[in-house]
Simulated scan of single mutants.
Amino acid sequence: MRYGSTRRLVVREKGALLAEEEYRALADFRHEIRRFQAFSEAHASKVGLTPQQHQALLAIRAADADQATVGYIAERLILKAHSATGLVDRLDALDLIIREVSPDDRRRTLLRLTPKAYDILASLSAVHREEIRRLRPLLLEIFDKFD
């Protein structure tokens, strides 16, 4: 360890130098990410979804038409294939998705949102957009501490 000017402690970790303000910025960033996650979880719960179900619906909505498969959900949500399959089964049971055979490759099953899912996702996404807009200046301030 060595001390820089004006009480700035600098620590060498694997060749990188981090200032105390960067540690604080990292802690602040992780805190804001967790606050957003808690916000998202609470709003998903209000409409009867688990956080993973909300994330899966959002992933399907954002995917290209031929991209939304169980494997894609597993990749986007960082899940094992069997966990993604269970999640998709639950979404199907809730009438939030439809499974369709791919017209290009009959071995692939594509996932589509139902009108019910579109409505739920639209309301959740509007609330999330407002929260992201609120967080943007704060996150930019944190990011500036790394310059």
Rank of each mutant, 00 (worst) to 15 (best):
R107L: 10
Y3C: 12
I120P: 02
V70W: 00
D147V: 14
L49G: 03
I120K: 08
D119W: 07
K80I: 09
S102Q: 03
T109Q: 15
V88N: 02
A74C: 08
F39S: 05
L110A: 07
L135E: 10
E130P: 00
R99P: 01
S45W: 06
G86S: 14
L57N: 00
G4W: 08
R12Y: 02
D119S: 13
R136P: 02
H82K: 11
R106M: 10
I60D: 01
A27P: 01
Y118M: 11
Y118A: 09
A74D: 06
L113V: 02
L124Y: 01
S123T: 13
A19Q: 11
H82D: 14
E22V: 07
T109V: 15
D147C: 06
I33W: 00
L113G: 06
M1Q: 09
A19T: 14
A81M: 10
A122M: 08
S5K: 15
I97S: 04
D147L: 14
L110V: 04
G71Y: 06
I132L: 15
D92G: 07
D89C: 01
I142V: 14
L58T: 09
L18K: 09
T50D: 01
A68F: 08
L111K: 05
R30C: 07
A38S: 08
R24M: 10
Y118C: 10
K46P: 02
E75A: 14
P103R: 05
E100F: 05
L77N: 03
G4K: 13
S125P: 02
L79I: 06
G15F: 06
T50V: 02
R30S: 12
A27I: 14
A93I: 05
Q67E: 15
I33N: 00
L135H: 01
V10S: 07
A42T: 06
I120N: 01
K80F: 08
L124W: 01
L87T: 04
V127I: 15
G71I: 04
F29I: 05
R134E: 09
V127D: 03
L9E: 11
F29Y: 15
F39H: 05
